[in-house]
Amino acid sequence: MLPALTLLLVYQTVGEMLAHALDLPVPGPVIGMLLLFASLVLKGSAPDNLRDTANTLLSHLSLLFVPAGVGIMVHAGRIRGEALPIIVSLVVSTAVTIAVTALVFSWLRKHGK
């Protein structure tokens, strides 16, 4: 658990360093994820302890969004004032995005190559 968690943090740190040093618009953790993925491909397998730790962390992924969500308190005024555009935009855009992505992907899998 501890070595695996350390490894994840090391990749995140390297990701952050690269993002800053090269002034990349991509956030550090995403670069960390891509680097770790590349390392696993090169290595040819994922160590068991890394897999267990990742599964533990990801099994409660939604918990990690709770603190940011509670921030709704701070913006309650603005959100109430612009409730209509915000709600329409969030609901319609999210629904359309799911539909478009799914349709494009499944169409390509049937017809493309």
């Binding site: 968690l5 994840l8 943090l9 990749y11 995140q12 990701g15 550090g28 953790p29 995403v30 960390g32 994820m33 891509l34 770790l36 993925f37 696993l40 994922a46 890394l50 897999r51 730790t53 990742a54 599964n55 962390l57 990801l58 992924l61 918990l63 990690l64 969004f65 709770v66 603190p67 940011a68």
Partner: peptide, 15 residues
């Protein structure tokens, strides 16, 4: 808790 979003993003490389 919020901080763990970073390492969790990195951990997505495994699945």
């Amino acid at each position: 808790v919020h901080f763990l979003l970073g390492p969790a993003t990195v951990a997505l490389a495994i699945p």
